[in-house]
Design a protein around this nucleic acid. Structure first.
Lengths: 261, 261
DNA sequence: TTAATCGGTTTATTATTTGAACCGATGTTG
DNA sequence: CAACATCGGTTCAAATAATAAACCGATTAA
């Protein structure tokens, strides 16, 4: 692992629960030497990726991230393009809907919408990395995404996030095959308890699946009729999102979806 | 300069005009060795800070930036908090208004609003770093910000962005003194031609100036009455923004502003 | 008063980054 | 079509930059 990765990994320690982290905490959680961490933090700070709370000396994510994110969104407006479709689908289903894209070994949430009407609602934020083996988005990606992805995923241990997380290679492969056959993935409490979700791939202009559209529902509320309805809605939205991004759904997937609907 | 900085600097080469950059272009513009740049790019990509256009092999800013920016904004919602004030001021003045924060040797735009009514309008985006010596935001920061800032700025050459950019230490110091005396900064086409602007500092809870509120106006439209009006509006908005962020305006600055109004 | 812990700094050692040369693919040109 | 240039990417010895133990001064706790 190179120095750059070591430094950037420090940024991943931040979360909504822990928006500020002190030097000693970094040292504890990473196990690295204090001086090393310190120099990494300083360099990240010098580039605006971190800033220091003058009062507590603790570090928080810096304004350079805002600038760069704004630039990406301005020149490659994924969020902006998918937002109306995600909003609309969320409104129709009254459930949490999100678009995520593949980023190496996990899915990265890009935009989500939760135009709720129910009391209980799922809360996933654009802040969390979604593991491939434990989420419906991830399984869809494994099923329809780039070739080496499955092998790469199995090369590392499959962490359990709940008692129901798939942690065996065999079961995961089975789930992926099932997903390939029916054209969408379904997971039940693989990542968060009491949440199950359905996902479908979205495709770019070269017919490559690069991300997913997913619906997350409290387990208590899920049933057969609802599932069928979500699948139906996902099919049209997923195609629409692919097209809105200048992509297109491959013919064989379209066939699959016609059967599923 | 450490490896981390070298890598992160690569991200700064992106702009709205150049959202995708190929390896060879990196090599040309940075002067670094190709292999070095390549490994840096690869490592940034592995962490989601870059992604590669599969067709052209060119690199663009990656989705991890979106995730981290969303997290920062969720836990430290600068944009969200200042937005209503910036929008309101922009609406009242019908000019471009923006909030920027100090990030080491430059100002980093956080949020801007341009609720125009005129034909000609200034277009500054949240994508550009604002140099301290050439912008009103920067001069305000030099005047009211942390102590070493002026020395640090003068330690490096003052680049000219237009023929009117201040490039001499003496003139800059004069401008900063004037700014300290009157409580706000005014620059005329220091960064962009045909654009002049006014800025005031905003303060945190410890009465430290950490950013600025600024108005940018086409030079053609600027006159004495307008300037007076902008100053008046800036004073109230600037106080309001400081307070909205949990900060407060130091007494001596408040006095200054009372005189200016 | 002592001890522990904090953020930050130093320096010799060590391991990583570096860059010239190389590769295969693709494209360009006389 | 053959010679040449340029592209993204790789290799490996040489050089540089990262590392970690010890140290510092300031706070805080006991």
């Amino acid at each position: 692992m190179g120095t750059i990765t070591k430094a950037l990994d420090l940024l991943n320690l931040f979360s909504c629960e822990q928006p500020e982290i002190a030097l000693s905490q970094f040292k504890k959680t990473t196990g690295q030497d204090k001086a090393t961490v310190y120099r990494h933090l300083s360099e990240l700070q010098a580039n605006g990726f971190l800033e220091q709370n003058p009062a507590t000396k603790a570090y928080r994510l810096g304004p350079a991230l805002l600038r760069l994110a704004a630039m990406r969104e301005q020149t490659y407006p994924l969020r902006k393009v998918v937002a109306p479709w995600v909003d609309e689908l969320s409104r129709r289903l009254s459930e949490l809907v999100h678009v995520s894209v593949l980023q190496n070994d996990h899915m990265c949430p890009i935009y989500h919408s939760n135009l709720h009407s129910h009391g209980t609602r799922v809360h996933i934020d654009e802040t969390e990395k979604l593991p491939l083996h434990a989420t419906s988005s991830g399984v869809s990606m494994l099923a329809f995404g780039p070739d080496g992805l499955m092998a790469q995923t199995l090369a590392r241990p499959l962490d359990a996030f709940t008692p129901k997380t798939i942690t065996s290679a065999g079961k995961l492969e089975g789930e992926v095959l099932r997903t390939r056959r029916r054209g969408y993935s379904y997971t039940d409490q693989g990542f968060e308890s009491e949440v199950c979700s359905l996902a479908m791939p979205i495709f770019d202009a070269e017919l490559r699946a690069f991300g997913t559209l997913a619906v997350a529902v409290p387990s208590s509320r899920m049933n057969r009729a609802m599932k069928e309805n979500i699948v139906k809605e996902l099919i049209s939205s997923s195609s629409a999102v692919s097209q809105a991004l200048g992509g297109a759904v491959p013919l064989e997937i379209e066939e699959l979806w016609k059967k599923a609907a």
